[in-house]
Simulated scan of single mutants.
Amino acid sequence: MANSRSGDSMTSRIVRVLDSFTGERTVQTATQIARRTGMPQSSAHRIVNDLVEAGLLERDDENRIRLGMRLWELALRGSRALRLRQAALPHMEAVQAQIRQHTQLAVLEHDEALFLERLSDPDSGANVTRIAGRLPVHASSAGLVLLAHADPAVRERVLAAPLRSLSPETITDAEALRKLLTSIRRRGHVVAPGSIEVISTGVAIPVRDHEEVVAALSVVLPRASPTEPAVLALLAAAKSIERDLQNSH
């Protein structure tokens, strides 16, 4: 791919355009995309036009831009995330029917917890998670499980970086976090009260595919709720998901 004057390849510029969309910012103008990506307006407009023509972006009647359906279609073709979500969803529904709060599935992606699915009860408590949204691995219960079972190099990279506080109870001390990760590997689950929001508790366990931890299954409960029923429900669901993953190979 040809490089721009700044040295960026066309691929990196396309990724920057697509990355300018977020869960909260789903519609933008081409001028806003240029500003948020730091690209010259002419370059941003040209890339946006090319992506619209390819169907990866869409333009509405007011000339605003959103992510295109073809991007979603391509993302699902042969996706490892789709296979995992399909195996997990029936068993997540069983957890949700019992817990009736929030049930979530996350994977480790670029040192963050990326959420593939979330089921929520209409009367459930607070939860900041979104499908296709991300949370820091050191703060979310799912992220803690993923980090505990990640490659040691990944753990050390995360522990060496500044650990951002999302609530007064987020663990931001590297040594305290290291001890918690060891405990998660030993116990097989984590209970993280107040780590994201002080009014909630996250509970998470690992999901394995042929011994490799490929995801974390979690629930978010009101702070005062008992956690043992959630742990038992998650363990049963994870066992079923792992069986279905093995049968799908």
Rank of each mutant, 00 (worst) to 15 (best):
R118L: 14
N127C: 03
P162E: 07
G133N: 01
T182S: 12
V145S: 01
L181Y: 02
L146C: 08
H189N: 06
L166K: 03
L163I: 14
T170E: 04
V203R: 04
H210A: 11
A148T: 00
R186A: 03
S124F: 00
L147T: 04
A132Y: 12
G133Q: 03
E169I: 05
L144G: 00
R134T: 10
V214H: 05
V128K: 14
L181M: 10
S165F: 02
S195L: 14
V145W: 00
A161Q: 14
S124H: 00
A142C: 10
V154D: 03
V198D: 15
P152D: 10
L180K: 03
T129R: 06
A204F: 02
A174N: 14
L135A: 08
A126L: 11
L159H: 03
A126S: 08
H210K: 12
I205N: 05
A148L: 01
V214D: 02
L147N: 02
P136L: 10
E112S: 12
L166Y: 07
L181D: 01
S183Y: 10
V190K: 01
E169Y: 03
D121P: 04
I184G: 00
V191N: 09
H210W: 14
I205T: 11
I205Y: 05
D123N: 13
A113C: 12
V128Y: 10
T201W: 01
A153D: 12
N127D: 00
A153Q: 09
A204Y: 01
R155E: 13
S120L: 01
E197V: 05
G202E: 07
V145C: 02
V137G: 04
S195F: 12
D123T: 09
P162C: 05
L114G: 11
T172W: 02
T201M: 06
L181S: 04
P168K: 02
A192T: 07
V137E: 01
A113F: 14
R157H: 15
R164F: 15
D123C: 13
A176W: 07
R178P: 13
L181C: 05
T170M: 06
E156K: 08
A176Y: 09
S141K: 06
A142S: 10
P162M: 06
P152Y: 15
L180P: 00
I196E: 05
P206M: 07
V158M: 10
V203I: 15
V128T: 15
A215N: 11
R187T: 10
L116G: 01
S183L: 12
G125E: 07
V154Y: 06
R178E: 12
P193K: 15
V198C: 08
V207N: 12
L180W: 03
P136W: 09
A139P: 05
S124L: 02
R187Q: 14
S120K: 02
R186K: 13
P206Y: 05
T172G: 02
A153T: 13
L177M: 07
T170G: 03
R118M: 10
E117F: 15
S124P: 01
D123F: 14
R118P: 09
A204D: 06
A174W: 15
